[in-house]
């Protein structure tokens, strides 16, 4: 299968009539990990939610394609089945539905009638849980109900490993995690990266990037990517802070 490519072209997005994204350009290929960093309220989560198709985010201009297909013409579930995955910042609780049942239903939704065998599913599930250092009992608990913040984040990664998307967006997968958990989650993500998988990691902090080692780092300010570079940009940002970017933005914006 061809390597995936997600292209975001001049994306403008409004929420309740207010423009949040003001022309985002971004391309993510298979075998690549991109990081999007930026201060709070700058549009990172809006970008993630828009890519997945949340109805609250209205695209006013620009386009998004996955492997050449027009994502904006697709419903949320169609985007997922086309290979897009969003690890959410605040995963929902689904009462009464076990994690295992949910995962199997989601896997089968992609396989269109060719349902995964129970044994195969169980083996893959347990292997993924081991990689993420999760108790196997986890599979029998209701989806995210009563989970700690860290457990919810691991559950997002677990879904990613099992659903095997082509492009994954991870929205603050590191928030609320202790350093050991950050390492585990980063390892889980890295195990996926290859010619058939690319990732967009949205984060506030450089910490997780130490382990994920993205090839591309983008800095987002006020609804736009204002600076892109390699991994060293994240280190520079960590040392100098966001004020440095804001200052640079003002200068370049005035030029």
């Amino acid at each position: 299968m061809a390597t995936p490519v997600l292209v975001v072209d001049d994306l403008h997005v409004a929420v309740d009539g207010k423009e949040i994204l003001k022309g985002v350009n971004l391309t993510v290929h298979g075998n690549e990990v991109h990081a999007v960093m930026g201060p709070n309220g700058t549009g990172k989560t809006s970008l993630a939610q828009t890519l997945m198709g949340h109805p609250r985010y209205v695209v006013t201009q620009g386009q998004i394609t996955l492997d050449g297909q027009d994502l904006l013409a697709m419903r949320v579930d169609q985007r997922a089945r086309a290979g897009l995955f969003l690890a959410m910042q605040y995963p929902s609780e689904i009462s009464g539905v076990t994690t295992a049942n949910f995962l199997r239903t989601a896997i089968n939704a992609r396989r269109q009638g060719n349902a995964v065998g129970l044994k195969v599913f169980r083996d893959e599930l347990e292997e993924a849980m081991d990689l993420l250092q999760m108790d196997h009992q986890f599979a029998n608990r209701y989806v995210n109900e009563g989970f700690s913040g860290g457990e919810k984040k691991r559950n997002e990664l677990l879904q990613l490993l099992l659903l095997k998307p082509r492009i994954a967006i991870l929205d603050e997968i590191d928030s609320g995690l202790d350093i050991d958990a950050v390492k585990v989650v980063a390892q889980g993500l890295k195990s996926m990266v290859g010619p058939e998988f690319g990732a967009l990691v949205i984060t506030h902090y450089q910490r997780i990037l130490n382990y994920v080692r993205p090839q591309f780092v983008h800095i987002m300010v006020d609804g736009r990517i204002v600076k892109s570079g390699d991994y060293h940009l994240a280190e520079e940002l960590d040392a100098k802070g966001y004020d440095w970017v804001r200052a640079a933005e003002t200068i370049s914006g005035g030029a």
């Binding site: 997922a80 959410m88 689904i94 239903t105 989601a106």
Partner: peptide, 28 residues
């Protein structure tokens, strides 16, 4: 609605997502 979005973002059609939420609601 957030749960509905969450399930659809995993590939479930809206119908399948609603079914899953209803089943979960009644299962206990």
């Amino acid at each position: 609605q957030a749960a509905l979005f969450y399930l659809m973002a995993r590939g479930l059609s809206e119908e399948a997502a609603v079914r899953m939420i209803v089943q979960g609601f009644l299962a206990p």
